[in-house]
Simulated assay, not measured.
Amino acid sequence: MGLGGCILQAEYEMKMKAMMVFFFSATTPFGIASGIGLSNVYRENSPAALMVVGILDAVSAGLLNYMALVDLLAADFMGKKLQEDMKLQAISFVAVFLGAGGMSVMAIWA
């Protein structure tokens, strides 16, 4: 949803927007079709499958960390309101660490 919103807000020509929307909407059906096609040859516990899943999980986690820390939190923490109020800044840091700790604890069962 976020990517779709960014595509619509971007200052591109209509042709470029239409092409981006097409590829955005075609990725899920393509992924489902390739998953169905590969399900006959995929062995869940093979060493190659475990390596691929581990690498893809690590890349996904890294991208999510980057987005959270650089794109989202940096904009909030560099704002004028937070920079001028030390108490609000301390509360924000504690909230970030509690949220990250809570997500880490939930990862035990994931």
Rank of each mutant, 00 (worst) to 15 (best):
A48Y: 02
S104F: 11
F22L: 13
A33I: 06
G102I: 06
N40K: 15
I91Y: 00
A49W: 00
S46L: 02
M20L: 15
F77Y: 13
V70K: 11
E13W: 02
E13T: 14
G101N: 10
G35M: 13
L69T: 03
G99A: 07
A90T: 12
T27R: 09
M78L: 12
M20E: 06
G79H: 08
I36R: 01
M14Y: 07
T27F: 10
V52S: 01
K17S: 07
K17Y: 04
Q9P: 07
Q83D: 06
A68C: 02
L69M: 09
P47N: 08
V52I: 15
F93L: 14
L63C: 08
D76Q: 07
G101M: 08
E11C: 06
L38I: 07
G31R: 00
V53H: 09
L56Q: 08
A18N: 08
M106A: 15
M78N: 14
D57E: 12
M86T: 14
M86W: 03
A110Y: 10
D76C: 10
G79A: 10
K87D: 13
D71N: 09
V59E: 09
L73C: 03
L69Y: 13
Q89N: 10
E84C: 01
V96T: 04
A110G: 00
N45G: 00
V41I: 14
A90P: 10
V96G: 05
F97M: 14
G31Q: 01
L50Y: 02
A26H: 05
Q83H: 05
M67T: 12
V105I: 15
A110E: 11
V70R: 10
S60I: 02
G37Y: 13
L50W: 02
D85I: 02
V53R: 15
D71I: 05
D71M: 09
A100K: 07
V41T: 14
L88P: 00
S39F: 02
A90W: 07
L8P: 03
M1K: 10
L69K: 08
N40S: 14
A95D: 08
M51P: 05
A68N: 02
S46F: 04
A48G: 04
G2N: 11
N65D: 05
G101V: 04
G102C: 03
L69C: 11
N65F: 12
L73V: 05
F77Q: 00
L88Y: 03
A75F: 09
S34G: 07
M1Q: 04
L56W: 04
M20A: 06
N65T: 11
G35R: 01
V53A: 14
G62H: 06
R43E: 15
E84Y: 06
L50G: 04
V21M: 15
I55Y: 01
A48P: 09
Y42C: 07
A10I: 03
V94K: 13
K87S: 11
L73T: 05
K15R: 13
S25L: 15
Y42V: 03
L3G: 07
Q9Y: 00
D57H: 10
A33H: 04
N40A: 14
G54A: 01
V59N: 01
F97G: 01
